[in-house]
Amino acid sequence: MIEKPVLIKEDGTRHDGRKSEELRPIRMEVGVLKNADGSALVEFGRTKVIAAVYGPREIHPKHMTLPDRALIRCRYHMAPFSTSERKSPAPSRREVELSKVIREALEATVFTDLYPRTTIDVFIEVLQADGGTRTTGLTAASLALADAGIPMRDLVAAVAVGKVNGVLVLDIDELEDEYGEADMPVAMMPSLGKIVLLQLNGVLTPEEFKKALELAKKGINEIYRLQKEALTKKYLSYPEE
């Protein structure tokens, strides 16, 4: 077995040099695909996810139509080359579960009742996985929905908080997830103060949980700011004369 790497150094920084409450370098770009109605590329460090939205559009097969609202269909999927060991492209149990929790987070924000009898399809492809892929995917998906012009109550911003060597750290990467004690992905509609995704994979005391949620909120506010910046960059820039 490989020896456990040093995750928190003596000076309190993490294995990649970050402070405990520091996000990885983030890149967000909106409207990266030509065919999709909306799309976004989001990177958190080496984690790279692309999301596309098609719709509202007609549903095939027709019998799936909902009479009073739009259907949301969501697929979270990892590319076979996204992980160190090749990932089989067939959907794993993990991907099925994550598709569900991501869809439920988006259901909370989309005004689905404006588009009855249609579907809004959200496709999330993880191109490179280095921890935090569901939160990065959700962050990208909400940008793609905005890019598609679909009315929403708020953007959804997400990040995972972890516990590593007893220290709560923001935005854990794969190494910290693998060797850490806890991984807690959180997604919020920040302006509305609503938590739309909350999972915990690990062990936390009730006190640690409260602190972890506070830390997540801090990260989410920063991610939210970057999301708005990315949208502004595309939609509110004036071409120079």
């Binding site: 929790v101 439920e104 259901e107 909370a108 807690m184 919020m188 509609m189 509305l192 103060g193 609503k194 938590i195 739309v196 995704l197 909350l198 999972q199 915990l200 994979n201 690990g202 062990v203 936390l204 005391t205 009730p206 949980f209 409260k210 949620l213 909120k217």
Partner: peptide, 23 residues
């Protein structure tokens, strides 16, 4: 008495206070 797993399900959100109450 430790929290060893959490899963939020369903199509609406929770405020922070609500999560605290639920826990």
């Amino acid at each position: 008495g430790r929290i060893v797993g959490l899963q939020k399900m369903g199509m609406e959100g929770f405020t922070e206070d609500e999560v605290d109450y639920v826990i």
